[in-house]
Design a protein around this nucleic acid. Structure first.
Lengths: 216, 216
DNA sequence: TAAATAAGCGAACAGATGTTCGAAACAGAT
DNA sequence: ATCTGTTTCGAACATCTGTTCGCTTATTTA
C-alpha cells in the first residue's frame, strides 16, 4: 500500500474526494467527482472509484448516494496528511504500531504472521522509537495498575534499568514484569502478592513498557 | 432562538440528524430521518425539516441528496446543549479529542478556555461519541487500576448505569468515581479503602469513562 | 504490425431521493 | 358541535445518483 503505486489520475481523485468532503461536509457524488477532476462521464468516475476500491484505498456502500468513504488504510494516509498540513493546531506526529498476537521464541519478535492489526497512536503518548503493542495476560501486575486485557506499548530495547516495567520473553510466552538486577542475577518481579518473583537470567528482554492503554 | 420553541418532535429530529450524521459520516436522507424518529411517511419528515429550516435551525440545499446541515445558529445551539459536541472533529477512523484542564462549575463542561491541547486517537480505542480527555487527580481509583496523572477518555452522557466509571462535576472540580444508584440516591464510590463513598445527588455526571491512557 | 490492456465516453436503466398534493387524524379555540 | 391550525400519511412525480453496457481512443505488450 504505497502511494507510489497510484497514478496521477488516482491521486487527483483521492485529493478531490478529500477536498469536496471537507468543503461540503459530506462525501461527493460520482458526478461531482467527475466534474472536479475533469472527467466528462460518470462512468469514468465510477471506473476510477472502482479501481481505488479494489486497491483498498476507498470503501463504498453500494447503491447509496454519497456512500464513498476512505478505508482504514486510506484514512490513515489522509489523517497523516491533514495532521501535517494543519500546522496552526499542535497535533504532533503519529506512530503506526503493530499489535502482536502470538509470540514465537527464538525468532524475531516482530514477524508478519505475529501481527494481528495495526494502530496509529500519537507520538506524545508512546514517545519515539520502535514500538509494538502487547495484550496483557493475567493479573500479575495489578498493583502497578496494569490489568488483564490492557494493551501495553513496548519500546524495543535489549536491556532495561532497575524498576522499569518490561516485556520479556520467557518459556515461549510474553510476560510483563518489573525489571530488577541484583547479585548478578536478573529478576522479573510481579506486582501482585499472590505471585512470586521469577529468576529472569534466561529471559529475553523485548523492551520497556512506555504506555498503557485500556478500553472499557 | 430558544429551545423552548421546539416541540418534542422537533427536538427528536434534530437529535436524530446529529446522531446519524456522526454515525455515518454524512448527513442523513429524509427517509433515514423518518425511520429514525418513527415517522411512516417521507413527507412527514420533509414537513419537519421545512419547519426547522424556516425557524433557522437547519440549512438545506434543494434537490441535493443528504443536503441537510445545521445552520450557524443551530450549530451554536448544538454546541451549547451538547457541551461542545461538535468540537470533536471526526476524521476517518480517528477522533480528535480535547484535553480538558480547568473545570468551571455551572458553565458548559467544554469551553475553549478550558482546553489545554488536542489529541487524535483511534476510534478503536475510545469508540464513537463525543469524547474528551481528563487528567486524573489523586489515587482514589487505584483499585480500579486508574492512577494519578492517568488520562481518562470520557464519553459525554448525562446519566450512567450502576458500576460504570464516570467523570462527575462536584464542588467545582471534576472527579472520577464508580457510579451507583441505590435507595433513590446517587453514590460516587472511590475504589480505594482509604476513601469514603460520596453522596452524589448534587453531582453533575459529565460522562462515562471509556478508556484509560497512561504514559510511563 | 497486431493483440491486449487501460482509460474514457455516451447512453440507457434501476434505484434512491427530494418534492408536491390531497386527504385524514388530532388538538385546541370559539 | 364547529372551526381552525397543526401534524401525519399515502401516492405520484421529477430529479438525482449509482450501475451497466457497448464503443472508441491511447498506451503497452507480444
Amino acid at each position: 500500500m504505497d502511494e507510489s503505486q497510484l497514478s496521477d489520475r488516482q491521486r487527483q481523485v483521492l485529493e478531490a474526494i478529500r477536498r469536496l468532503k471537507q468543503e461540503n461536509d459530506m462525501p461527493p457524488t460520482l458526478r461531482e467527482i467527475a466534474e472536479a477532476v475533469g472527467l466528462k462521464s460518470v462512468a469514468s468516475a465510477k471506473y476510477q472509484i472502482d479501481q481505488l476500491k479494489n486497491m483498498g484505498w476507498l470503501d463504498q456502500i453500494d447503491n447509496v448516494s454519497r456512500g464513498i468513504s476512505f478505508s482504514d488504510q486510506g484514512s490513515r494516509h489522509q489523517q497523516e496528511q491533514e495532521a501535517a498540513a494543519e500546522s496552526n493546531v499542535h497535533i504532533g506526529k503519529f506512530v503506526r504500531v503493530p499489535l502482536v498476537g502470538r509470540i514465537a521464541a527464538g525468532g524475531p519478535i516482530l514477524a508478519e504472521q505475529n501481527i494481528d492489526e495495526w494502530m496509529t497512536l500519537p507520538e506524545s503518548l508512546v514517545g519515539k522509537g520502535d514500538i509494538f503493542l502487547l495484550k496483557v495476560k493475567g493479573d500479575s501486575m495489578i498493583d502497578a495498575a496494569i490489568c488483564e486485557d490492557d494493551m501495553v506499548a513496548v519500546r524495543i530495547q535489549k536491556t532495561a534499568e532497575n524498576g522499569d516495567i518490561v516485556a520479556a520473553l520467557l518459556d515461549d510466552s510474553a510476560t510483563v514484569k518489573t525489571f530488577k538486577q541484583r547479585d548478578g542475577h536478573t529478576w522479573l518481579l510481579p506486582r501482585n502478592s499472590n505471585y512470586e518473583p521469577i529468576l529472569g537470567d534466561e529471559a529475553q528482554i523485548m523492551g520497556k513498557v512506555v504506555a498503557v492503554l485500556r478500553s472499557l
